[in-house]
Amino acid sequence: MLVWPLKFVEIPLKEFKKILYYHVIFEEYKKLKRESDTLSARLVGLEEVIKDNTRLERLLEFKRKLIFPSVAAYVIGRDPSRWNSIIIIDKGRQDGLVPGMAVVSPEGIVGKIIEADKKISKIILITDPQFSVAALVQPAHINGIISGSLQGFCRMRYLNESQDIKAGDKVVTSKLSSSFPEGLLVGEVMKIEVDIQTNEINCLVKPAVKLSQLDEVLVIR
């Protein structure tokens, strides 16, 4: 019988207790908020570490698969101009790098070294108009030359035939290339273009590597 009135009294008592201990609860809330913020920041850092780890694991696996000796390097700089597609890596002559060496990543080819200092090297990317490499379209097995363009894509020129090429075909380095090993992925055919003036057939090729998000590369020695 007494349970109901007692419960009725308990409610305002509880509320009064809350008001009385308000500052203690608020202090605890502030402490927990601080802890939560710290943990959130740490979590963001950890997510970045996990991503780095996954990327480096892929690079290591690729390095193991490569039959050529290679040197891993970090990208430390980028030319801030649309006219050039050049990056700088943290390895140079003292690591055995010389101009002309091929630079690759697990996704495909990146470019080649154009300048090697003692501790750093400049790499010309496959999207630079000055870059060129012998390549072939698969599965049609048609040879051509890949060079960069200002659009941020590559262009495959001097194709001997084009009727068998279609969008989505893979482009790989050919054995005619002097600086790249045979069979490395360059990208895939996006579009086939015909030059009206010269009647020449070109292919627009999307690079397999996301060159703007490149962090680590392998230099083939």
Binding site: R82, W83, D128, P129, Q130, S147, S149, L150, Q151, G152
Partner: peptide
């Protein structure tokens, strides 16, 4: 470099 005007004008 091996660049053409039309492409340079359009993309840069």
């Amino acid at each position: 470099k091996d660049i053409v005007f039309a492409e340079s004008f359009k993309f840069v």
